[in-house]
C-alpha cells in the first residue's frame, strides 16, 4: 500500500495551490518529506490535510485561522476524552 503521496499529485486532485500545502507544512501542522526534487506527505496525514482544505475552501478560513482552529480542535478532543473518562468514573458512584 502506498504510504506517501506526492504533493504535485495532491494539488492536482484537490485543485489547490502548492503554496497552500507548503503553508500548512511550514506551520508544523504536517510534515513534508523531500526525495530528490519531489515533495511528499504521508498517507496518515492526508485526513488532516483534507480537513484543513475543507475549512479553507468551504468556510474561507485563512492559513492563520486554520492554525488556530487546529489547536482549538485538539483541545476539544482532549476535553472530550477527559469527559469520557470522568463519565466512566462517575458510574462508580451510581447505582450503589
Amino acid at each position: 500500500m502506498e504510504t506517501k503521496i506526492n504533493i504535485q499529485r495532491l494539488c492536482e486532485v484537490y485543485e489547490i495551490e502548492r503554496s497552500f500545502v507548503i503553508s500548512i507544512c511550514e506551520a508544523d501542522l504536517i510534515t513534508l518529506y523531500s526525495e530528490g526534487n519531489q515533495d511528499f506527505i504521508t498517507v496518515e496525514e492526508l485526513p488532516f490535510l483534507e480537513r484543513m482544505l475543507r475549512l479553507h475552501q468551504d468556510l474561507g478560513i485563512n492559513e492563520e485561522g486554520l492554525h488556530t482552529i487546529h489547536h482549538l480542535l485538539e483541545r476539544v478532543t482532549d476535553m472530550k476524552e477527559e469527559i469520557r473518562q470522568l463519565r466512566n468514573r462517575l458510574r462508580l458512584y451510581e447505582d450503589f
Partner: peptide, 13 residues
C-alpha cells in the same frame, strides 16, 4: 456562510 461556520462538521467533530 455565517451558520455554516458554526455548524460545519469539521469544527464540530
Amino acid at each position: 456562510r455565517k451558520l455554516a461556520r458554526k455548524y460545519h462538521p469539521d469544527v464540530n467533530p
